[in-house]
Design a binder for these strands. Structure first.
Length: 496
RNA sequence: CGGGGAGUGGCGCAGUCUGGUAGCGCACCCGGCUGGGGGCCGGGCGGUCGCAGGUUCAAAUCCUGUCUCCCCGACCA
């Protein structure tokens, strides 16, 4: 998209789904491709993903993991070894059956040729293909724990796709670990869930609820599945990351065994955990406003954009000089990321492009500032017009503090509307249903006995069980569904 | 996969009912004036109307098929 385009064609209030797509378009994050259900991630969108990758990758390495890479293709026979797993994914797997093309006899184009002896599945996730390697890598308890992560693309043939939230092919990371005991695997599962929580909240400024999936929502083949659920500005929940305790299920399917200290051969305990480009969709729906994307400074590829209003040498040089000073600063232990936009577009056009792309701080510097040493500072994260003419030295002196303010302000705004969507005061199913039917559109925390199904009355309202919270959120003693003693709290919401 | 909506220059749309060979706004290019919330004036470039087939003297407009996108639902680690 060219630099200067008009305002968004929808607001959050008028049409939330359309607004979401408008933000993606106006912030130049991605576009649909010619391939059904697949998207092109454009440079600005990919730069955001790279920020996420860099931060997550550091956290994975700090917790002892290393990266590796496994094949895109999985032999059908391999994926068949895990029955529950296959059942969960079979309906959405792409299958490669041929390995070349030839000209059709009737001249109608190319047709598949060279049928494979065994079909190859395009990975929807990599437990089975990685398990095959792990089974050969591991012999002894001394080989454990094995802590591997892979950055990859996966394919799931979803019936309905949405940009960033659910596409046929998407980018993610998947951690796969092997442990000598059930306890260690459980600890790993919890540790990585906490990594996702901390990353979401500290870097993305996106508040999440940590919880455990109900058996119905569990990862196929897992013993326990944990997740972080984020609440979007329309009150819907988004599963933003998952961490699975796979028990010995996959080790048995893949033959991952080891000799313990006593010389006994036993199956290992494995985990897997993943987060994807869906996080970008989460950030969009958490922070953006009716002017476009808003990015917290810890995530934004550029934290400050300096715009020379006039493109003559003197002004451009002054802008570069200011940028250099700002780059000399450090915020959160890293150099401040500063970009100078000296493209040949009108200054207001350039400024608005960065507004739509969500950069937290924009500094405009023109001819008239050459004498005064001043510049105009815009705080993108504030909804109301907010521009301030300051001495350039003041901007440099305050930049770090201002970035911190942006981060904390965006966090508290997101936490504020999240809290406004949460209700835990219901005392009956009927009350919940009545609330939704009369316009409530948020998240319900309901005391639960850990077993009772969600009443049909609520399923009909498109509510689903997102997770059971890890710690009690209510003090209620009886399950809202069964009347039995409550042991947990269930999070109910509409979801993406 | 079920229901609904839509595909016309880069983007957003009108035209389709009542067939006659394409129009508007924005963007883009050139010139000028401007320039701190997305500016103004003038002059230009650019599309055969998602794709395929059919009806017709004539199809963006009618018919059939098909693909894609969007919304709701089902489905979904």
């Amino acid at each position: 998209m060219a630099a200067g385009t008009s305002r968004l064609a929808a607001t959050r209030e008028s049409d939330f789904p359309k607004w979401y797509l408008e933000v993606i378009k106006h912030a130049d994050l991605a576009e649909n491709s010619v391939v059904r259900g697949c998207m092109v991630i454009k440079p600005w969108g990919y730069a955001i993903w790279e920020q996420m990758q860099a931060d997550l990758d550091r956290r994975f390495k700090e917790t002892g993991h290393v990266n590796a890479y496994f094949p895109l293709f999985i032999p059908k026979s391999l994926i068949e070894k895990e029955a529950d797993h296959v059942e969960g994914f079979a309906k959405e797997m792409a299958v490669v059956t041929h390995h070349r093309l030839k000209a059709a006899d009737d001249g109608s184009g190319l047709v598949p040729d060279g049928e494979l002896a065994e079909p190859l599945v395009v990975r929807p996730t990599s437990e089975t293909i990685i398990g095959e390697s792990f089974s050969r890598w591991i012999q002894s308890y001394r080989d454990l724990p094995l802590l591997i992560n892979q950055w990859a693309n996966v394919v799931r043939w979803e019936l309905r796709t949405r940009m960033f939230l659910r596409t046929t092919e998407f980018l993610w990371q998947e951690g796969h670990t092997v442990h000598a005991t059930a306890e260690e695997a459980a600890e790993e599962t919890a540790r990585m869930l906490e990594v996702y929580r901390a990353f979401s909240e500290d870097v993305l400024a996106m508040p999440v609820i940590t919880g455990e999936k109900t058996p119905e929502e569990r990862f196929p083949g897992a013993v326990r599945t944990f997740c972080i659920e984020a609440i979007m500005q329309d009150g819907k929940a988004l599963q933003a990351g998952t961490s699975h305790d796979l028990g010995q299920n996959f080790a048995k399917g893949s033959g991952i065994t080891f000799s313990d200290k006593e010389g006994e051969v036993q199956h290992a305990w494995t985990t897997s955990w993943g987060a994807s480009t869906r996080l970008i969709g989460g950030v969009i729906m958490t922070h953006s406003d009716d002017n476009g994307l808003r990015l917290p400074p810890s995530l934004s590829p550029h934290q400050i954009v300096v715009i020379p209003m006039d493109l003559d040498d003197e002004v451009v040089a002054a802008a570069q000089e200011l940028a250099t000073k700002l780059r000399g600063l450090a915020w959160r232990r890293a150099p401040v990321r500063v970009h100078v936009d000296g493209r040949d577009f009108d200054a207001p056009t350039r400024r608005w492009e960065w507004v739509r792309r969500g950069v937290p701080l924009i500094v405009q510097l023109g001819k008239r500032d050459l004498g005064s040493g001043k510049a105009m500072l815009s705080r993108r994260w504030r909804e109301q017009p907010d521009r301030e003419l300051l001495l350039q030295d003041e901007i440099v002196a305050q930049a770090v503090e201002i970035l911190e303010d942006a981060q904390t302000t965006m966090w508290s705004e997101a936490a504020g509307y999240r809290d406004a969507f949460l209700r835990s005061d219901f005392t009956s199913v009927e009350e919940i249903a009545a609330a939704y039917e009369s316009g409530f559109d948020g998240v319900v925390i309901a005391p639960w006995d850990g077993e009772a199904d969600m009443p049909e009355r609520l399923a009909k309202l498109a509510l689903s069980r997102r997770c059971a919270t890890l710690t009690r959120r209510t003090t209620a003693e009886t399950c809202l569904f069964s009347g039995n003693p409550a042991t947990q709290d269930l999070v109910l919401a509409k979801s993406y």
